[in-house]
Design a protein around this nucleic acid. Structure first.
Length: 567
RNA sequence: CGGGGAGUGGCGCAGUUUGGUAGCGCACCUGCUUUGGGAGCAGGGGGUCGGGGGUUCAAGUCCCCCCUCCCCGACCA
């Protein structure tokens, strides 16, 4: 492509609303342009990168046996009512009122894919099947941010597997998981597959593909010793019950703490009365209810956050009223066994011999509460949100937290969706109706250019890996306006490379050399070929590797072969 | 949704305090000169100053209402 014909205008300054480096560079270099908050156009350069990424996904998904199709972005609202997600995902759903009724702009396509392919999957003989699409999705994000990282309209590659059994689902899952590994390898991105929390989409085993990034909105815990990696929402700490010598500890004592219900308030109130108390010495006791409505209490030190296990939900005001032994803000573990409350304690609760805790009495706390003397627990385990330095659950070495962006997510859905949709069935060998065992697999395609740009840039601009670069070679001419023979040579190199299948961006503009150099660095094509009179007079051409910064001089006769060899 | 900040030409900004003909840099157009790291000179085009209402002889500037955008938090297949 000749730059004189390319719809492109680079900018020297980034728009004031661009915070992330990737956002600034992608806008300045002319890859994307904002149309509304969280809504972006892909300009020709940006689309080429996106197309490269899509092609990688197609090749690897196809190789894994998946078939591409295209589902609608507009979904009849009824299919969302059927799974209950019209209500549970109401926060992010965007709807359209049209003549035929109300439509949901699809934020994800489990309902739509089942509605579409179930007629083709009537028999166990038709299974397994995995289909995928690359589609625009819509989510009414509360706060779009960081350019392409978090948008309201975005492009996702999403695959769905259908199997006759759990074992089959796991096989499909593994093969798609391997496809994800190959895709991220080919993009050149550093990534870590982590164990994840299944969240609202439901299902059981799932992994997130995390790209470490300064603008990521997730954190995962990683053990560099043994390789354990899990999303902060799913990560567990290791530990064991610590033997504590509690023999010399004075009897539990009650203290009035009127109005002090938070950790901070209690510590400052009792501290002001001369007691030796810190956040870490005050037991935080939080009450939840399980699926049966039974109360479950979790104990963690006051300086830690509770990681709420799946299936537990916080108590409502009504729950507090019906459990009159619980005083909101003054809860403690004492006597809970007699009330039929299951008490779960984090390992760290055994690391201190005595505790401050709620007194189970309005406006009071206790000191010197001792485990197995003053209160009992039913289970000791990992119940905190892990922090830097917590022991790894596998090997006990220190975990570290890594900020990251979620680039992909794979789920074993099991029967979570098919069980809610009457027609999500097939005839089994014995003639019975069975539900599909499903998996789903998503990659945020329009987010990837931002994730890559975050990892591949320098102070001058972008530095695309070859596999995703919009062009492989950029040719720029110096002083073309007064050197026809130079232009003729550059034209011939451009034509020759193009005819041999190399994607070439040819800066044939009649502008100052500095502008061309600066734009080439900004745009970030991996090989930059400078054709000027100075070099040409000596029979050499400068070729710069944008990734390494290395410059080499290539003899004119060898130029074409040299560039072809880079591909 | 809570807190903070900002809307002036395609982009970056000044002007608002103290009301008096809307400016600068980049980009764009024309001409000449220049030409290996974001050229120079001369000329030129482009702005409902986010929108509506109000005060005033006069509003980018003061008052009221609304909208949009950004940051922090909450939320997040």
């Amino acid at each position: 492509m000749r730059m004189t014909r390319l719809a492109l205008k680079t900018q020297r300054e980034a728009p004031a609303d661009a915070e992330a480096v990737s956002h600034q560079l992608l806008v300045r270099a002319g890859y994307i342009r904002r149309m509304a908050s969280g809504v972006y156009s892909f300009l020709p350069l940006g689309l080429r990168v996106l197309t490269k990424l899509n092609q990688i996904v197609r090749e690897e998904f196809d190789a894994a046996g998946a078939q591409e199709l295209l589902l609608p972005a507009l979904h009849p609202v009824e299919i969302w009512e059927q799974t209950g997600r019209l209500a549970t995902m109401a926060d992010v759903l965007m709807t359209v009122d049209a003549k035929g009724g109300t439509f949901v702009l699809g934020p994800t396509h489990e309902e739509a894919v089942i509605a579409t392919v179930s007629p083709d999957l009537e028999s166990y003989r038709d299974l397994p099947v995995t289909v995928y699409q690359i589609q625009t999705k819509f989510r009414d994000e509360a706060r779009p941010r960081y350019g392409l990282m978090r948008t309201r309209e975005f492009i996702m590659a999403d695959a769905y597997s259908f199997d006759v059994s759990q074992e089959g689902m796991k096989e499909s899952y593994n093969s798609m998981y391997q496809a994800f590994v190959k895709i991220f390898d080919r993009c050149g991105l550093p990534y870590v597959p982590v164990e994840a929390d299944s969240g609202a989409i439901g299902g059981d085993v799932n992994h997130e593909f995390m790209v470490p990034s300064a603008i990521g909105e997730d954190h995962f815990a990683q053990c560099v010793e043994c390789g354990y990696a899990a999303n902060i929402e799913a990560a567990k700490r290791g530990g064991s019950r610590q033997p504590a010598d509690t023999s010399g500890i004075a009897a539990m004592e009650i203290h009035a703490t009127p109005g002090a219900s938070s950790v901070r308030d209690v510590v400052s109130f009792l501290g002001a009365k001369g007691l030796d108390i810190v956040d870490a010495a005050l037991m935080k006791s939080l009450a939840f209810k399980d699926a049966n409505g039974d109360v479950v209490m979790i104990l963690v030190p006051g300086n830690r956050e509770v990681r709420v296990p799946a299936g537990l939900i916080p108590l409502t005001d009504a729950d507090f009223e019906s459990n009159s032994f619980l005083f909101k803000g003054f809860i403690g573990p004492m006597g809970m066994r007699d009330q039929g409350v299951r008490v779960l304690a984090d390992y760290s609760i055994t690391e201190r011999s005595s505790w401050f805790a709620g007194a189970n009495l309005e406006g009071h706390h206790v000191s010197n509460a001792v485990l197995d003397r003053d209160f009992t627990v039913d289970e000791i385990g990992s119940f905190v949100v892990v922090a830097d330095g917590d022991p790894c659950p596998n090997c006990g070495r220190a975990l570290s937290l890594v900020r990251s962006a979620e680039a992909g997510h794979t789920f074993q859905l099991g029967l979570a969706y098919s069980s809610k949709i009457p027609y999500a069935t097939f005839k089994a060998e014995d003639g019975s109706d069975q539900k599909y065992w499903m998996g789903c697999y998503g990659i945020g395609m329009s987010r990837l250019p931002a994730a890559i740009a975050e990892n591949f840039h320098d102070e001058n601009g972008l530095r695309w890996p070859r596999s995703v670069a919009p062009y492989q070679v950029e040719i720029l001419t110096i002083t073309p306006g007064r050197a026809p023979e130079l232009v003729a040579f550059a034209d011939s190199v451009y034509e020759e490379l193009s005819s041999r299948g190399v994607e070439v961006l040819y800066d044939d503009r009649d502008v100052a050399a500095g502008v061309k150099f600066a734009d080439a660095d900004l745009i970030g094509v991996p090989a930059i070929v400078t054709i000027g009179q100075r070099g040409l007079a000596n029979g050499v051409i400068e070729v710069k590797d944008r990734l390494s910064g290395e410059r080499s001089e290539v003899g004119v006769p060898d130029l074409i072969e040299h560039l072809l060899a880079l591909q």
